[in-house]
């Protein structure tokens, strides 16, 4: 086992340094699919987080608690539900998204929405409430004042986006159930790791796992650096 791990590390660096086309394309696909999922989730989570964070309305606590409760939703359970919905006979079958990269991206976006909304809401709520009033008294409309609050919470929002991307790129359930691990089309890092390890190709599995870890670490460091510039 130890040998396999050492061999895995050697192979990982070999694959990375040699620029193995298969490994590169799987990694690039992972980034593209999970990046799309993160953009989709951010597109609806940002306004949602802003409304929950800035406005006060009836049922606000219930909405917040619901998103917090959904933080731990098992990816595989969501994968099954989406599989049933997107399969040809399912209610969303006409979209023909099963076994497509876009299908995985949509599934991952739904999976990470509770993370994005909860983190963004917390970031917005941590901003001094007087900032909203300050913007308004300087002439801002409600929307402009909300953007002023959003600007003050850039660090927290960046953290929310990073955490969301990391969860998306590292999940297996949705990618496997909706993507189907089709070589050259929907095979991503996590499905490839599961497959290679299952086949006994431990070294390749470990190599891909190291690439996944490096990717997650690199994104986190990058966002930290960008966040630290403000």
């Amino acid at each position: 086992m130890v040998e396999a791990i050492i061999e895995g590390f050697e192979k990982a660096f070999q694959l990375i340094l040699s620029g193995d086309p298969e490994v590169l394309s799987i990694s690039a696909r992972s980034i593209l699919i999970s990046g799309t999922a993160t953009l989709l989730a951010a597109a609806w989570s940002l306004p949602l987080g802003l409304v929950i964070g800035v406005r006060s309305f009836r049922g606000k606590r219930i909405v917040r608690s619901t998103f917090n409760a959904l933080l731990g939703i098992p990816a595989v359970a969501l994968g099954v539900i989406l599989y049933l919905a997107l399969s040809r006979s399912g209610p969303l079958g006409f979209f023909h998204m099963l076994y497509t990269p876009l299908g995985i991206a949509l599934g991952q976006a739904i999976l990470i929405t509770p993370i994005a909304v909860s983190f963004i809401t917390s970031a917005i709520e941590s901003v001094d409430p007087e900032i909203h009033r300050l913007a308004k008294t300087l002439g801002a409309s409600e929307t402009e004042a909300s953007f002023a609050v959003l600007r003050e919470s850039t660090g927290g929002v960046a953290l929310a986006v990073t955490a969301s991307f990391n969860r998306a790129v590292a999940e297996l359930g949705v990618a496997l159930m909706i993507g189907g691990n089709i070589r050259g089309s929907t095979r991503v890092l996590t499905t490839a790791i599961a497959m290679e390890t299952g086949r006994g190709e431990l070294a390749l599995g470990i190599a891909l796992a190291i690439i996944l870890l490096l990717l997650v670490a690199a994104i986190s460091v990058l966002m930290n650096v960008l966040g630290g510039r403000r």
């Binding site: 900032i131 009033r133 300050l134 008294t137 300087l138 002439g139």
Partner: peptide, 27 residues
Amino acid sequence: EALRRASTMVFQRAVVFSGSVYENVAY
């Protein structure tokens, strides 16, 4: 909005946007 543009308020506790003094006054 019209009244908001014709007036402004200074709060009891000093509140500033993050960023430079220029950015604050220019907002």
